[in-house]
Nucleic acid binder design. Structure first.
Length: 633
RNA sequence: GGGGCCUUAGCUCAAUUGGUUAGAGCGCUACCCUGUCACGGUAGAGGUUGCGGGUUCGAGCCCCGUAGGUCCCGCCA
């Protein structure tokens, strides 16, 4: 037997027991005579002591004295224990075990047998849970020696690429084990909760079809059908809807999804969704279900109660007030409408925007004046220009005891200044940032970015680490015009249901006005997931494809199966998908989803541990009828 | 596809204005040490400064290119 218990199970009540532990050498302290080893397994640490004397005898002496101490409710009398005849009378020294212990190094794997003993008075270690006891070793088995690790395992400042290259070592750290365990708790809570709610966990194919909408697909060539390809699913979207047509009614899956797009700190080419779909359900019912799920997840993973129901905010409000469809509402800065103030302004840039149906908005970064020099404001302007294609970033800085500093304020009339200051709550120490454009969206989006950067600058989130601001963003537009493709595209996906009251607008061709029965759940400015009520009528679905520029023939080829399915009595249905990786990232407080994925890919989609992806033989390519066009170096 | 930042010992970093033999801490190796827990002490090993080119009497430092890493924009729900 390798072990009888874990390295985080022994306490004072186990004193006297003979145990065997197995694990890794976390650290070793060799005092020449006595040798201490912190033995580590998944559960924790236990100190093991190797002494050059006869270990079992020593242990029994200490235990006897501890037992005696317990009856007198005084601490163990060390002097007495050490003067015990057994301790001083020429013990049989087993040097072999001790010599083995001397040769132990970090990360060696051992199994050790000994007796649980109390630590000597004053040598207890409050930092570890087993710090009251130690193991007096009598037998040591070295199961495997370890090379010197390429980096210190407990050092959080080590380069991530090195950690990823040796991920199996990185995963040994308490930090990573905590994240992986917590992820398990989240998945377990999800399965338990949805099972209790009557949902069935159903697997869907990983080899499926390319989808014309949305992200780029990962392709898989079919050997048995030369020249044809599967695609890895971006989401199990069609299958989960077809399961509703199939009458399974309530489906969920912890689903792996694949998207061949560029990576980010919160984006991997393969990621996991908590995928949910149900029949005969309304949008509010799905939202309530998900509120219950998230409550359960946060309760079981972090022990916190989150208030439900979550606030609702329309997409229009979110954009207008926060400049984002996933607003971080933990801090108060909001976008303020100023268009009406400047319709007749002497400042031509604003006047032409305001009178021409455009939008002028601003945000007030309270107290930012002291933190932003003229040079820094220049840099911010440069930043919005290069990163978001803004024309500029107008500002007014009002230092405490100073004047308004701004390249534009000299063009404002006194009335405009007064109205502006009043509406913005502009005070000494503040900085205003303006956005003005013929179109609403870029004004909101750019100020939304500036808003986030202001929060960062002002440290508004520093003391709000534990705050959890959930909210639903609802009433998304169904369609958006893509100038690149020169046609309308689905904002969510093409199966999303238009709001009943907006169907006339759709039929009238006023596509920009049509809202969807779609909803996103947002936590602290991060989109956790989104879903919608779907179209279940064949005609409406066909109509929507038409709007999206998919003609009848294409519809038949790409979506014939789902259109046909809808003609056989599809129930009203809808669902949602939550990003599991992001959710666990937020729960653990990690800054990247790589911290909550056992074997993630780096920025370029490479697995540094396995060197994946790799080149393959010509022969292997030939079998699947593929020829690479990549240029050899 | 584009932009920012980074790359010096196994790890984390330093190296003044371009100037001697590129240093420190940790880790590693050996020895000493019987109560430590980030043990302590003594000694030692360890470097093509990512790579290629250029400027210069002289380059870790300046210039050009390139590779890798990371964050962001585009892209992606």
């Amino acid at each position: 037997m390798y072990r009888t218990t874990s390295c985080n199970s022994l306490r004072t009540e186990h004193i006297g027991q003979s145990v065997t532990l197995a694990g890794w050498i976390n650290s070793r302290r060799d005092h020449g005579g006595v040798i201490f080893v912190d033995l580590r397994d998944r559960e924790g640490l236990t100190q093991v002591v190797f002494r050059p004397e006869d270990f079992p005898k020593l242990a029994s002496v200490l235990i006897d004295h501890a037992a005696e101490a317990a009856t007198t409710s005084k601490g163990i009398d060390l002097e007495k224990a050490y003067s015990d005849p057994l301790m001083t009378s020429g013990l049989n020294i087993d040097e072999r075990e001790w010599e083995k212990a001397r040769a132990l190094r970090s990360e060696d794997v051992i199994s050790v047998t000994g007796r649980v003993a109390p630590r000597l008075q004053g040598t207890e270690n409050a930092k570890i849970e087993t710090g009251e006891i130690e193991i007096i070793a009598s037998e040591l088995r070295v199961l495997n020696k370890a090379d010197v690790p390429p980096f210190p395992l407990d050092d959080p400042s080590v380069n991530e690429d090195l950690r990823l290259q040796y991920r199996y070592l990185d995963l040994r750290t308490a930090h990573m084990q905590r994240n992986i365990k917590l992820r398990h708790r989240v998945v377990k809570a999800t399965r338990d909760y949805l099972d209790e709610q009557g949902f069935l966990e159903i697997e869907t194919p990983v080899l499926s079809n390319p989808t014309p909408e949305g992200a780029r697909d990962f392709l898989v060539p079919s050997r048995l059908n030369p020249g044809t390809f599967y695609a890895l699913p971006q989401a199990p979207q069609q299958y989960k809807q077809l399961l509703q047509v199939a009458g399974l009614e309530k489906y969920f899956q912890i689903a792996r999804c694949f998207r061949d797009e560029d990576l980010r700190a919160d984006r991997q080419p393969e990621f996991t969704q908590i995928d949910v779909e149900a029949s005969f359900i309304t949008d509010v019912e799905i939202q309530t279900l998900i509120e219950g799920l998230l409550s359960r997840i946060f309760k079981e993973s972090r022990g916190v109660d989150i208030p439900v129901p979550f606030p609702r905010m329309t997409y229009a409000d979110a954009m207008n007030r926060y400049g984002s469809d996933k607003p971080d509402t933990r801090f108060a800065i909001e976008l303020v409408e100023l268009t009406d103030i400047f319709t007749a302004s002497t400042f031509k840039v604003f006047a032409s925007v305001a009178s021409g149906g455009g939008t002028i908005k601003a945000i007030n970064a309270k107290g930012a004046a002291a933190l932003l020099s003229k040079e820094q404001l220049k840099k911010w302007e440069e930043w919005v220009k290069t990163e978001f294609g803004a024309k500029g970033l107008a500002y007014i800085k009002w230092s405490v005891g100073g004047e308004w500093e701004s390249p534009i304020v000299k063009f404002f009339s006194d009335a405009e200044k007064k109205a502006l200051a009043e509406r913005m709550g502009f005070a000494e120490g503040d900085v205003l940032f303006f956005g003005a454009d013929a179109k609403l969206e870029p004004v909101c989006e750019i100020l939304g970015r500036v808003r986030l950067r202001c929060a960062e600058l002002l440290g508004l989130l520093a003391e709000k680490k534990d705050q959890l601001n959930f909210l639903w963003v609802v009433d998304f537009p169904l369609l958006a015009f893509s100038p690149e493709d020169n046609h309308w595209v689905a904002v969510h996906h093409p199966f999303t249901r238009p709001k009943a009251e907006d169907v006339p607008a759709m039929e009238a061709g006023d596509y920009g006005k049509v809202r969807a029965v779609a909803y996103d759940v947002v936590l602290n400015g991060v989109e956790l997931g989104g879903g919608s009520i779907r179209i279940h009528e064949r005609e409406l679905q066909a109509k929507l494809f038409e709007v999206l520029g998919v003609n009848a023939e294409e519809q038949q080829i790409k979506f014939g199966h789902i259109l046909k399915a809808f003609s056989f009595g599809a129930p009203p249905h809808g669902g949602i998908a939550l990003g599991l990786d992001r959710l666990v990232m937020l729960i653990t407080g990690a800054s990247s989803i790589r911290e909550v994925i056992a074997f993630p890919k780096n920025n370029r989609g490479c697995d540094l541990m396995t060197s994946s992806p790799v080149e393959v033989d010509f022969k292997q390519l030939r079998e699947v009828y593929i020829q690479s066009t990549a240029k050899k170096l």
